[in-house]
Amino acid sequence: MDSLSSVSVALSDIEGQIKDIFRALSNGYQKLEKMKDSNRQSRLLEELTGKMKECKRLIKDFDREIKEEESRNPPDTNRLLNEKKQSMIKELNSYVALRKTYANSLENKRVDLFDAGGGGGDVFAKENVQLASSMTNQQLVDSGNRMMDDTDQVIERSKKVVEDTINVGADTAAALKAQTEQMSRIVNELDSIHFSIKKASQLVKEIGRQVATDRCILALLFLIVCGVIAIIIVKLVHPGNKDIRDIPGLGPPALARKLLWDLN
């Protein structure tokens, strides 16, 4: 470890981040093993896939830093750094293999294709998952790159689905907003119509009351006119009738005027 005393701060920092991710992956797969709900397993597996993608990027940064500092470091340091890089790649590949195993298992659960007696699933797993201990360093690197490329493609497809979902959600939100505004305008128009109907009803009532009052006045006037006409007719027909003289409203007959010298 004395040969690694000249390692740069950048390499140490990258190595620390990779170790943190490996610890998170280890804890995550332990939790994944204990989970029974397929939906929770799928969500956790997506989170672990994102961490593996980040780890792949950090390993590439680590390799780039090694190449940049190769001329400044002694051969033993470069050898130890390359061995450390290969160890990181090997550990990451093991997590990638676990991810594929769990992904296949979840897929089999979704389509309900378990075959307890045939053992076809075991053969499929053996064909797709190669033990890391039986592979050379170059094979580990190539296999890890292929697996991580597959993971990147899956992540990109997932991102595309998320983007499409976000776009659909935005369109739906815009449509709901437009419908809400339209409903608000309709409610305002209904309020205006209700107010107009109420005012019209009050106006009709006022007109009705006024018409009723006018009718009462006209009826009263008609009765008065009829009474006056009847009195006049009776007066003309029976001028000597005393009862007619006593009718209220009619004045007594005028007295004959006599001159003063007639009295004398």
Rank of each mutant, 00 (worst) to 15 (best):
M1F: 11
D2H: 08
S3L: 06
L4G: 00
S5D: 15
S5T: 09
S5E: 12
V7P: 00
A10S: 09
D13G: 04
I14G: 07
I14E: 04
E15Q: 05
G16I: 02
Q17P: 04
I18Y: 01
R23G: 07
S26W: 13
Q30A: 13
L32R: 06
E33C: 06
M35N: 04
D37Q: 11
D37T: 09
N39I: 11
Q41C: 10
S42P: 03
E46D: 12
L48R: 05
L48P: 08
M52V: 08
E54S: 14
C55F: 03
K56P: 00
I59A: 11
I59P: 01
F62Q: 01
R64E: 15
E68I: 12
E70R: 14
S71I: 14
S71F: 09
N73P: 02
P74A: 13
P75W: 04
T77S: 13
N78E: 04
L81W: 00
E83Q: 14
E83L: 13
S87L: 12
M88L: 12
K90N: 12
N93F: 06
Y95K: 10
L98I: 03
T101H: 10
N104M: 14
V111F: 03
F114V: 06
A116I: 10
G119N: 07
G119D: 11
V123Y: 06
F124W: 09
A125N: 14
K126V: 08
Q130V: 11
T136H: 08
Q138S: 13
G144R: 09
G144D: 07
G144C: 06
M147V: 01
M148W: 04
D149E: 15
D150R: 09
D152G: 02
D152S: 09
S158G: 15
V162S: 11
N167W: 05
A173M: 08
A173C: 01
L176N: 07
K177G: 02
K177I: 00
A178Q: 12
M183W: 05
V187D: 05
E189S: 10
L190G: 00
S192D: 06
I193N: 03
I193G: 00
H194Y: 07
S196L: 07
S196I: 04
S196K: 07
S196N: 07
S196Y: 06
I197Y: 10
K198S: 11
Q202P: 03
V204M: 12
K205I: 01
E206Y: 02
E206M: 08
R209I: 06
D214A: 15
R215E: 14
C216G: 10
L221C: 02
F222R: 14
F222V: 05
L223R: 12
V225K: 11
C226S: 13
G227C: 05
V228T: 07
I231N: 06
I231H: 15
I231W: 05
H238Y: 15
H238F: 15
P239Q: 03
N241D: 01
N241R: 02
N241Y: 00
K242R: 00
K242Y: 02
K242P: 03
R245P: 00
I247D: 01
K258Y: 10
L259W: 12
W261I: 10
N264Y: 13
N264G: 11
